[in-house]
Amino acid sequence: MMRILAISDKINLPRLVAAAKSLNPKELVVITSAEANVPADKLIIAKLGDGLNECWVKLVEEQLDGYDLTMMPSTRNFKEIAARIAARKEIPYLSEVLDVRLEEGIVVSRMIFSGRGIEVLKTQLPAILTLNLDPYEPLEGQPSSVEELEFNCSPQVKLLERREKEAEVDLTKAEVIVSVGRGLKKKEDLDIIRELASLLGAEVACTRPISADFKWLPEERHVGMTGVRVKPKVYLALGISGQIQHVVGFRDAETVVAVNIDPEAPISEVSDYMIVGDLYEVVPKLIEEIKRRKS
């Protein structure tokens, strides 16, 4: 029977606890930075000053001994923290884990090659994992005990500023997504895309070039390997060629409808319906058709 240490920020904690509980640990201890309502045997609220990664690393390093498994969410911060602790402790670390099972050590699966494949890896305990928490439902409940922990840390790195993104949207919750790629010729043309989206009650999303290179849309609307992974009922892909770094982002969409001028574009292989046509002709007609049906 295992002892598990779960370390998380506030947002990811209820789903991380669900992941930890699914392994039926004998004991589950949670370290987080704020009060939380999760069914752990012990909840440790760490007071970490600026909460820099360096301080998390030092804190967890001190707490880790005696646990079989240490679990964290696969966020960018925790991927750094987990890797650093694994290096200090010289124990195995596996990242972005999709699925974990116990079997003389642990067996995990994780995505590779931008989502083209899954690899199954096996290693011994103790180990550290960062998990992709999408498959887990948040778990709430009373911790059996709560403890506060003051942790003094003088980091080498100095925090100058933190800025939150103007979080206007959470694409992971969108039911319908209208997404554009490089088939869109200029920023102003987003107007018709937005009109279509608003008729459908959809969110607008894009491929990486549209957000990162052209900056026509904010990064939080970028669907893909290094962007957001979405699971809408309908994903409407307009002028998107279908590069795999993008495709992995909408893998879990129920239905994918693509409009692309090139019948051979790779998007045709990964969509349910591929409309061969120019989005500049099809989208206005689609807007007309939807308006007609709504009236």
Binding site: A86, E90, I91, P92, L94, V107, M111, I112, G115, R116, G117, I118, E119, V120, L121, K122, T123, Q124, A127, R251, V256, S268, E269, V270, S271, D272, Y273, M274
Partner: peptide, 18 residues
């Protein structure tokens, strides 16, 4: 620390492709 590769599989999502 040793990590053993058990297998690699393609990740295929079936689509209608009409």
């Amino acid at each position: 620390p040793q990590v053993e590769l058990v297998e690699i599989k393609a990740l295929i999502k079936e689509r209608k492709r009409e």
